[in-house]
């Protein structure tokens, strides 16, 4: 139980990372590979936020009832992950647009067959 309470978030984050990496390495359909990229991104963001957590801490926002910074969570990883999420979605949108054009040109989305048809 103690082991779980220490490492459960790291196990979840790296589990997602490895499943996403396995999808990107072994699947043949291009859209499946892009789904794997999305899952890999989510795993990395989970790991970054799990590092910045302090036990018993609260969200880094002041209000009328929270007026001192006694126990607040680290705000820097949250800013980095905010930037990362937006960049992840723009990469995904551009990759899907290129996949649509590839399908229009070759007629298939199988990566092995596209590699064989050169020029």
């Amino acid at each position: 139980m103690n082991f779980l309470s220490q490492y459960i978030y790291y196990i979840g984050a790296f589990g997602l990372f490895f499943i996403g990496l396995y999808i990107m390495l072994t699947k043949k359909n291009l859209i499946k590979v892009i789904i794997g990229l999305d899952i890999l991104d989510t795993g990395v963001f989970l790991f970054l936020i799990a590092i910045g957590y302090t036990s018993g801490g609260t969200a880094p926002i002041f209000s009328k009832s929270v007026t001192e910074t006694g126990k607040m969570v680290d705000p820097v990883p949250q800013a980095l992950v905010l930037t990362g999420i937006v960049i992840g979605v723009s990469v995904l949108a551009l990759a899907l647009a290129l996949a649509i054009r590839l399908y229009g040109h070759y007629g298939t989305l199988n990566l092995r067959k596209i590699k064989e048809q050169r020029w």
Partner: peptide, 11 residues
Amino acid sequence: IPFGKTDTKVG
């Protein structure tokens, strides 16, 4: 990496 302790000075 310990979970729940941070040593960063920038934060």
